[in-house]
Every structure is written in structure tokens, then in C-alpha cells.
Amino acid sequence: MKKDLNGKITRGTQRTLDAFFEAITALLAEKPFADISVNELCEHAGYPRATFYNYFEDRDDLLAYCWTALSRQADLADLASTAPEHRIDTALDAMADLLESNTELLRAILRNNSSEGPLFSSLHGFIERQAREIIRTCIDRDRFTLPADLIADHYANTVMLVLDWAYLRGHTLTREQLHDYAHTLLRGVE
């Protein structure tokens, strides 16, 4: 992304980012990602192509921004202060909350975009990277003999697998079931 989002963002910048975010989510509810052009995005957002390219390299860059914007909705700030035995449940709940709060959008997007296609590959990659980073920072390193990065990858992949099963593949699970599935799959390292 061409704009640095780590510093203070002006209202004008946020308004532009929001317009492109809303444009791509609206278009994804209507058609596959592969069929969305930069021109359509700009028309829908109400900005010229030059503005799009001032903010983003391409459509994939906009998509990466969208994942980042959505992830900010997840409440993961206090994960490191959570007791180690509850961290996986807390991370799983935060990600599940995010998916559930966007259920209608997710359903609309799933109607037009295969869960095996580039859109969901991008989403999977983003969630896995985020989960690894989150879990890597709060692994109880004294509890395991394996390298923390390896355990973080295993935990992140397991969390992603359970979320994928429940939210992208359409298996309705309660929170208790989500937790039970994750813990059952993780027993090999616990």
C-alpha cells in the first residue's frame, strides 16, 4: 500500500480509504473478484483512477488493505495478558466475532467467489499471517520444548482450519464446539 497507515491518518485519507473499501465490498457482493476492474472500483467509489493509484498498487493491494481494515475490528489487544490456557479460545473468539459481524457480506461474497479462488486464498493467507503473529507473541515459551515459531504456526493453522470449517464451508458450530474442535486438534502439542 502506498499510504502509511501506521501514523496519523487524515480525515480525507480515511474518507478515501472507506470509499474504496465500500466499493470493493459492494462489488464483491455482486460479482467475482476477477471480474472487478479498477475503473469499476473508481466509479463506484466516486474517485478518479489517479486517486486509486495514489493509494494502491493494484486491486490485490486494495484487497490487502480491506483485510487489514477488517482485522482492526477484531478485539485482540489484550491477548498477551490473557492466561496462556485461554489464549487460543480468546483469539478464536475474536476472529469468530469478526466473521460473524460480517456474516451477510461474507455470504454475498461467497455466492460470487469460490472459496478455492484468489479472493479467499488472499483472505486465508492474511488470516494465517495475522494468527501466527498474534499467537507467536503470546506463546508460553517455557511450556514447550519445540520452537515457539513452529508451535505458533501449528496453532495458527489449526485456528484457521476450524474457522474455515465453520464459516467458509458452512458448518454451523457453537462457540463451545469451535473451542472443542480447536482443543481436540491441538492436543498433540498440549
Rank of each mutant, 00 (worst) to 15 (best):
R143K: 14
M1N: 05
T10V: 00
V162Q: 00
I36F: 12
A94I: 01
A64M: 13
R87F: 00
H44R: 13
A96D: 11
L92C: 04
L70W: 05
Y181N: 11
L150K: 06
S114M: 00
R11P: 01
R141V: 04
E133D: 08
H179G: 08
C42P: 07
R129T: 14
Q130H: 02
N6A: 04
S101Q: 13
R111K: 13
D60M: 12
E85V: 15
Q130R: 05
A166I: 03
G7N: 09
G188F: 05
D75N: 14
T145V: 15
E85A: 15
P84H: 07
M95E: 11
G188Q: 12
L161R: 04
F33M: 12
A108P: 00
F126I: 01
T103M: 12
D97S: 10
T145W: 07
F20A: 03
L178A: 01
L110E: 13
N157T: 08
I151D: 01
R107I: 08
S122W: 14
C42D: 05
I135R: 04
A26Y: 02
I36A: 06
S37V: 03
H44G: 04
Q130S: 03
N6E: 11
D140G: 03
H179Y: 07
Y167A: 05
R49H: 11
A148Y: 11
I134A: 10
R187E: 14
T25G: 01
F126K: 06
S122M: 15
F21V: 01
E43W: 02
M95I: 09
N6I: 10
A83G: 10
S101D: 13
P118D: 15
E85D: 15
D89K: 05
L178H: 01
M160A: 10
P84M: 07
A29T: 06
K3D: 07
L185G: 01
N157S: 13
A108Y: 02
L76R: 03
F126N: 07
A29M: 03
C138V: 14
I9A: 01
H86A: 06
W67C: 07
A94C: 11
K3H: 11
I88N: 14
A34Q: 12
G117K: 13
D140L: 03
L186Y: 06
L62N: 06
N54F: 15
A148M: 07
F126C: 02
E57A: 09
I88M: 02
L76T: 13
C42L: 07
G12C: 05
Y155W: 06
K2P: 14
R59N: 10
D89W: 00
H86S: 04
C42N: 01
P84T: 08
G125M: 12
L186M: 08
P118W: 11
M95D: 02
L62D: 02
G46N: 05
L99S: 13
I88A: 13
R59M: 06
H171N: 08
D60A: 15
A83S: 13
K2L: 11
S122V: 14
H171W: 01
S115F: 08
P147W: 05
W165R: 15
